[in-house]
């Protein structure tokens, strides 16, 4: 009975959705919103206006910079919320430094140790080249966080935590919003509006974009690793 009711309700909800889809322009048609609104301007002038060859980075950090500023703050809030909800004693099972926390095949341990520097290099490449090629701060930061997580599993947390020392970790966690505020204020001084980028394509605009990318990368990586570590703590 309940199931039949749900199916009937879904069917009713599907009718207006399908009707709306039928009234939309066909796939690939020039009438599509993607071709009639701001997108064409982004594609034509994005590279010179936004100061980044990768149009996606230009849109995310320049045209929609304020959006991204909020999103980065949300990521930090997630970290803070995890810390608030999962109150832990801070202690955990005793482990010897350099030893795996779970029983592990020596092949896995060896391969991870062998690949670790290359993964780190790739992460930084993705962060710093987000301006010209696919990628950016968030993607690179997540790759770096994945490296820290796999190191915690293979080599133990004591080794992995040395990458992000506890003393400076709160500052690293908030690196994303902080770099946005710093660059935004710099933009306000230079152009008169928060997060305004100098229009002339030059070293300064690129440096400002890279500053934000680095901040997002370090912040994202630290937030993900911190959430992982906190979930692993003893209650």
């Amino acid at each position: 009975m309940k199931k039949a009711l749900i199916i009937a309700l879904l069917a009713v909800a599907a009718i207006p959705l399908l009707a709306a889809m039928a009234s939309m322009p066909r796939f690939g048609s020039p009438e599509q919103p993607a071709y009639t609104h701001v997108a064409s301007r982004y594609l034509q002038k994005g590279a010179e206006e936004a100061g980044a060859d990768n149009v996606v980075t230009g849109v995310i950090l320049n045209y929609r910079g304020f959006d991204t500023n909020g999103e980065v703050t949300v990521i930090f809030t997630a970290c803070a919320a995890t810390a608030a909800v999962l109150v832990t004693s801070g202690s955990r099972k005793k482990e010897k430094p350099g030893e795996a926390t779970v029983p592990l095949s020596p092949v896995v341990g060896y391969v991870v140790r062998l690949l670790a520097p290359f993964i780190a290099l790739f992460a930084f490449y993705v962060v710093l080249f987000g301006e010209v090629s696919p990628g950016g701060g968030f993607q690179g930061g997540t790759i770096f966080a994945a490296l820290i997580i796999i190191l915690s599993v293979v080599a133990g947390r004591n080794v992995a935590e040395r990458v992000l020392p506890a003393r400076v970790r709160p500052w690293l966690q908030i690196a994303g919003p902080l770099s946005f505020i710093a660059v935004g204020t710099l933009g306000a001084v230079l152009t008169g509006s928060y997060l305004g980028f100098p229009h002339a394509r030059g070293l300064l605009a690129t440096a400002m974009l890279m500053g934000i990318e680095l901040g997002i990368g370090i912040g994202g990586a630290t937030v993900f690793a911190s959430i992982f570590w906190r979930l692993g703590d003893e209650p």
Binding site: T57, P134, G135, G136, Q139, T142, A146, I149, F224, F228
Partner: peptide, 14 residues
């Protein structure tokens, strides 16, 4: 490719 990278790192990984 930007979204694909995020999906692989965040969705499949973290």
């Amino acid at each position: 490719p930007d979204v694909a990278m995020t999906e692989a790192a965040v969705g499949a990984g973290v």
